[in-house]
Design a protein around this nucleic acid. Structure first.
Length: 571
RNA sequence: CGGGUAGUGGCGCAGAUUGGUAGCGCGCCUCGUUCGGGGCGAGGAGGUCGUGGGUCAAAUCCCGCCUACCCGACCA
């Protein structure tokens, strides 16, 4: 293509509202424009990348036997009512009523639709199946942010596997794991798998593919020695042993006027690791105590995953007072028998602890958790802290900010059951299928690449997804020889299937150089009178800013080699 | 939803404290000059100052609303 005919609206300044680097550069480079919060238009350059990312995903999905579908984006309410998610998805689902008065939703994901299509799989002989699509998803995010990283409307490759048993599901899951490794590698993304929480989707094994970036929204716990890695939503670490203080025969109360916090109680000689923190939550309508060591933060997601709770919120001051007779700051679980008490594992075998006495301005010391507290269930619900020992090898854990680029998990039979997705097995018995669900966000992947591939001059696309593989920078558009030479190289490269961009604009060289760097084309061939006199062109590599002079007649061959090499290279 | 910030030409911004009919840089158009890293000169086009109300008069002051961004909550 000729730059003079293309719509590439580059900007010298990023819009004030763009904060994330990927957001700034994608807007400045003329790849995207915002229509409203969380909704972006793909301009020609952005759409080219989008298509290349999709193509890579397709190839790798096809390679593991995936079959591509295209499902409706708009769904009838009753489909979602069947799975129960019409209620549980809440405000995140876009809903409206059509002219007939029927409730409708825009699909946030397609478990329901695929599972209902799956009812037409009737025999175990037809298994396994892997079905996928690249479809627009709609989610009414409470806060879209960071450009393409978190939006309300986006393309996602979602695939679903159908198997008759766990063994089959494991195979389908592993196939996807392998495909994802391939996909991210080809995209130039350094993505690594981590154990994840399954969240609202339910299911058992769940692995996220993470790309390290400050622009991300997830924290990942990693052990650099043994390779352990998990989303902090489910990560656990070993405890540094703590020697119990001596306990008497029973807890001893002591006055603590104006002591309302862990820190205040610590000043009275009870350091946080010798305190019990008592949280009061309303869990699915039931008042519940949650106990942690004084210095350990509570992680709601872990609690939800363990208990399967649907609704979780901190109790109000009044609820707490009427149930326990004291206000936050003096709460404790000693002597409480009428409420469920969940206790974090870090409190196992602990004694000599301090905690509130459920009387304002009074605390207990010498509490033995096992002896004095009526534990309903021991649970791991604490947030881990950077530097704590790895459970595997004991080395310190680091916590890294990451972008979630992909998520694969085993759904099990939940959706198949709801939709009646069954087959007959070899003995003629009806069996409910077990499913897996696997997702990659296309625009998020683009943003993640932008986030990790740029310098102060602009983007640096990997050859695999760059909108153009090479740009020919024609320095003087009124210099006949230059034009002829550039045209010839342009034609020859085009004919050999290279994605080539000819910068034939009547602009000053500086503008052309700056623009080509901003939009991140991997290779640049500079044609100008000065070089032509000596029969040479200049070849510039964006990723390392290397510049070499090569003879005019070797340009096509050299560029073709570099492009071919770059396309097949996985990072 | 809670806290914060901001809406003035395509992009970046000034003007507001002291109400009186809008200005700068970049970009855009024309001409000239220049021509290997966003040049220079001259002339031009383009704005209901987010929106509704209050005040003789509002970009400016007051009130309501909308929109966008950031932090938090939330979130396959």
């Amino acid at each position: 293509m000729r730059w003079s005919n293309l719509f590439i609206p580059t900007l010298r300044d990023a819009p004030a509202e763009a904060e994330a680097v990927s957001h700034q550069l994608l807007v400045r480079g003329g790849f995207i424009r915002q229509l409203q919060s969380g909704h972006y238009s793909m301009l020609p350059l952005g759409w080219k990348i989008h298509k290349k990312v999709s193509a890579i995903i397709r190839e790798e999905m096809d390679a593991i036997g995936g079959q591509e579908f295209l499902l409706p984006a708009m769904h009838p309410a009753d489909l979602w009512q069947k799975s129960g998610r019409w209620e549980t998805m809440g405000e995140e689902m876009f809903r409206f009523v059509d002219r007939k008065g029927a409730d409708q939703a825009l699909g946030m994901t397609h478990e329901e639709v695929f599972a209902s299509l799956g009812t037409e799989i009737t025999s175990y002989r037809h298994l396994p199946q892997i079905w996928y699509q690249i479809q627009t998803k709609f989610r009414d995010e409470p806060r879209p942010k960071s450009g393409l990283l978190r939006v309300r409307e986006f393309a996602m490759k979602d695939s679903y596997s159908f198997d008759i048993d766990d063994e089959g599901l494991n195979t389908s899951f592993d196939l996807h794991h392998g495909a994802y490794v391939q996909i991210f590698s080809r995209l130039g993304l350094d993505a690594f798998p981590v154990e994840a929480s399954s969240g609202a989707m339910g299911g058992s094994a769940s692995v996220e593919f993470m790309v390290e970036s400050d622009a991300g929204e997830d924290d990942v716990a990693r052990c650099l020695s043994c390779g352990y890695s998990a989303n902090v939503e489910r990560a656990s670490t070993a405890l540094i042993p703590i020697e119990n203080r001596s306990s008497g025969d029973e807890p001893e109360s002591f006055p603590t006027p104006d002591v309302r916090t862990i820190a205040a109680l610590a000043e009275l000689g009870h350091s946080p690791e010798h305190q019990i923190k008592t949280l009061v939550y309303v869990v699915d309508g039931e008042l519940t105590l949650i106990l942690l060591r004084g210095d350990h933060p509570f992680l709601e997601q872990k609690f939800i995953d363990i208990t399967g709770a649907g609704d979780l919120r901190p109790a109000t001051g009044e609820e707490i007072r009427s149930a326990l007779g004291a206000s936050p700051g003096s709460l404790g679980a000693v002597g409480v028998t009428n409420l469920p008490i969940y206790v974090d594992l870090a409190l196992q075998n602990r004694s000599g602890m301090a905690t509130g006495a459920n009387t304002d301005d009074v605390h207990y010391s010498g509490v033995d958790v096992q002896r004095d507290i009526n534990v309903t269930k021991w649970v791991d619900v604490r947030a881990i802290l950077e530097g704590e020992p790895c459970t595997n090898c004991g080395d310190p854990i680091t916590i890294t900010r990451c972008i979630e680029a992909g998520h694969i998990f085993k759904l099990g039979r939940r959706y198949a059951e709801a939709m009646g997705t069954t087959v007959l097995d070899s003995e003629g018995k009806s069996q409910t299928l077990t499913m897996g669900s696997y997702g990659i966000g296309v625009e998020r992947a683009m943003a993640a690449v932008a986030e990790t591939h740029h310098d102060e001059n602009g983007l640096m696309w990997p050859m695999s997804i760059t909108p153009y593989e090479v740009v020919i920078t024609l320095l003087k558009t009124d210099h006949t020889e230059s034009v002829a030479s550039a045209e010839q190289i342009y034609n020859e490269l085009s004919e050999s299937g290279i994605d080539v961009l000819l910068d034939d604009r009547e602009e000053r060289p500086g503008v052309k150089f700056a623009d080509s760097e901003l939009i991140g084309i991997p290779l640049r061939v500079t044609i100008g009178p000065r070089g032509l006199e000596n029969g040479i062109a200049e070849l510039n590599t964006r990723s390392n800013n290397q510049q070499t002079e090569i003879s005019l007649d070797s340009v096509v061959g050299e560029v073709t080699n570099l492009v071919t090499e770059g396309r097949s290279k996985s990072s």
